[in-house]
């Protein structure tokens, strides 16, 4: 479970860490959007350079980003192969039944591959440099305008941060219960498929029981400390928007302009 890089925060310090999480969050989604504007070698190359530059100034080892690709490997491979062999073309290099291999196919497959790399790298960059709690704070802040239509923004944000807070807790609990059952002679990942499914019962039941009791304790703890949601709650972590956040937005704007220019070039 430690192998999952996407969604994990890595403690560190660099300009990317210090950016306002709201800005980082919006920029990440904006960037994923403009990735689809790229249409030729130069524009993809430009975006790739930008992402690599962002990785460089984040001072995080590139290895972490490459590891981030791993869980998506099969999806990437499948999509790339699909493009490679099923892109229709007027002058195929090779043809067999429904399969076609052409320079067009190769080009599109390469684009798709780079697109995956760009999107995964930039979202990994967001989660590696931003704590889950910062992300949920920024979602709350971004959703604030929806209060006008009576959308329960604070409640949703609270649910989100509790859910995020529970992830490591549940992982710990799962590891602990798995260890305890292993010590009682359960072999996970051995035997036939039915055997394997059965071996999860001794984990799932204790996990449910303890999740309910943790949730119950949490509710009691919050109530006894006087938690009440609604208007006028002040924030413990105050997000501050500074000059460098404006700078990062300007950089994004420049990138969009350059991209549009390269695209039509």
């Amino acid at each position: 479970m430690n192998k999952l890089i996407i969604g994990r925060y890595l403690p560190g310090d660099s300009i990317i860490y210090r950016l306002d999480p709201r800005g980082k969050f919006l920029i990440t989604f904006y960037f994923i959007g403009i990735v689809f504007l790229a249409n030729n070698v130069a524009s993809y190359g430009f975006l790739l350079l930008f992402v690599l530059f962002a990785v460089y100034i984040s001072k995080i080892n590139l290895g972490f980003f490459i590891k981030g690709l791993r869980p998506m490997l099969w999806l990437i491979l499948f999509t790339v192969l699909l493009q490679l062999f099923f892109t229709p073309s007027d002058n195929p290099m090779w043809h067999w039944g429904i399969f076609t291999l052409s320079t067009d196919g190769m080009r599109i497959a390469a684009y798709i591959f780079i697109r995956f790399v760009l999107i995964i790298f930039i979202s990994t960059l967001l989660t590696l440099t931003t704590t889950p709690i910062e992300i949920s704070d920024s979602i709350e802040s971004i959703l604030k305008p929806l209060k006008v239509i009576k959308f329960p923004v604070t409640q949703v944000a609270l649910m989100l941060s509790i859910a995020l807070r529970f992830v490591p807790l549940l992982i710990d609990e799962t590891t602990k219960i798995m260890d305890a059952q292993r010590a009682r002679g359960v072999d996970f990942g051995e035997g036939g498929i039915m055997q394997r499914i059965k071996s999860f019962v001794p984990i799932l039941i204790p996990l449910f029981v303890s999740s309910f009791s943790i949730a119950y304790d949490l509710a009691i703890a919050m109530e006894s400390r006087g938690y009440k949601d609604g208007e006028g709650r002040s924030k413990y972590r105050v997000l501050s928007w500074s000059k460098r956040d404006y700078m990062s937005l300007i950089v994004m704007l420049l990138i969009t302009i350059i991209l549009l220019f390269i695209r039509s070039y």
């Binding site: 219960i177 059952q181 010590a183 009682r184 204790p206």
Partner: peptide
């Protein structure tokens, strides 16, 4: 398994292993 049979382990708060 032979090793784990010979080495019994009572974890912290072992009641959470009941199912």
């Amino acid at each position: 398994k032979p090793l784990r049979k010979n080495v019994g382990m009572v974890f912290q708060f072992p009641e959470s292993q009941l199912f």
